[in-house]
Computed example of a mutant assay.
Amino acid sequence: MRLILVGPPGAGKGTQANKLVAEHNIPQLATGDMLRAAVAAKTPVGLKAKEVMEAGGLVSDDIVVGIIRDRIAEPDAKNGFILDGFPRTLAQADALSQMLSDSGLALDAVIELRVDQSKLVSRIINRAEEAKAAGQPVRKDDDPEVFKDRLQAYNNDTAVVIPYYEKTGLLTVVDGMQSIVEVSSAIEAILSKLDEKV
């Protein structure tokens, strides 16, 4: 099962990805984590990425796709994976599609957690207050101003991949304003339909 979860920051992608990892025993592939791991492991692609990052540049789509290619070849991704934070642009979506095709693979589904963005800021403030009350550190992303910037970046860049996947017929929308349990149930319903097709 090869999935992409999309949605703005604060939509609950991380929470749902963690549940899917536990339920289906497939890894969540977060591009930032994979980049750091590839750099640490000194893989050929990791060394290229390190060079670019040390020069203060942005890692190219080719390098990121190369890191994903290497990562999905590992044994724990044999039964599938969840992509998180990628693709962020149309060029990345095309590159991912080409790379999977070259590897004889294809995506099974793209699940969009659709949310009311006007309500997201209050959701983030609540999340920060709950973390404080529980004596946990507050994520730096949960600062309302930082969050608004991230939301703007998502709307400018990443939101464009949604129509791309809609055209391919891979996109399914889930109401991300529901409770965590309801969102999980909706995702599981989508995945069980995929299993029926197999």
Rank of each mutant, 00 (worst) to 15 (best):
I187P: 02
Y164N: 09
V45Y: 07
F147E: 01
L35C: 09
V59C: 01
D94F: 05
K19R: 15
L58N: 06
V64S: 05
V21K: 07
D157M: 15
L100S: 06
I26A: 06
K42W: 03
K193N: 13
A73D: 12
G14H: 05
L47Y: 03
G14E: 08
K119V: 12
P75H: 08
I72G: 07
N25C: 14
A133E: 14
P137T: 07
R123W: 11
R71I: 01
K193L: 14
L47P: 05
D108Y: 07
L5M: 04
K50F: 11
E130V: 14
K132V: 09
V161E: 07
G176V: 00
A153C: 07
I162A: 03
T168E: 09
E74I: 06
S103A: 13
P9S: 00
N79P: 08
P9K: 02
I124R: 07
D76Y: 09
A95H: 03
D108S: 14
S118I: 15
S118R: 09
D33I: 10
L120T: 08
F147Q: 06
S103K: 13
P44V: 08
G66C: 02
A186V: 10
L96D: 03
E182Y: 06
A17T: 02
T158G: 01
P8N: 00
E54P: 06
G176A: 01
L191Q: 03
D102V: 10
L194H: 09
A186D: 07
K140P: 12
K167C: 11
I26C: 05
E74S: 11
R88K: 10
G66H: 03
E74H: 11
L20A: 03
V198I: 12
E182C: 05
D142P: 01
G10T: 06
E130G: 10
D108G: 12
L120F: 07
Q98A: 15
Y154H: 11
R123N: 10
Y165L: 06
I82A: 06
V161C: 06
T89A: 10
D33R: 00
A106H: 15
T31Q: 00
F147D: 03
E188V: 11
V39P: 02
P144S: 05
K119M: 15
E130F: 13
Q178C: 08
E196G: 13
E182Q: 14
L83N: 02
L151M: 10
P8A: 02
P137Y: 12
P87G: 04
A106S: 15
V39N: 00
R88H: 08
Q16D: 01
M177S: 11
G57V: 06
Q178T: 10
V65L: 03
L100Q: 09
L100P: 07
A22I: 09
N156D: 15
R123M: 07
G10M: 04
A153K: 09
V64W: 01
R123E: 08
T43R: 08
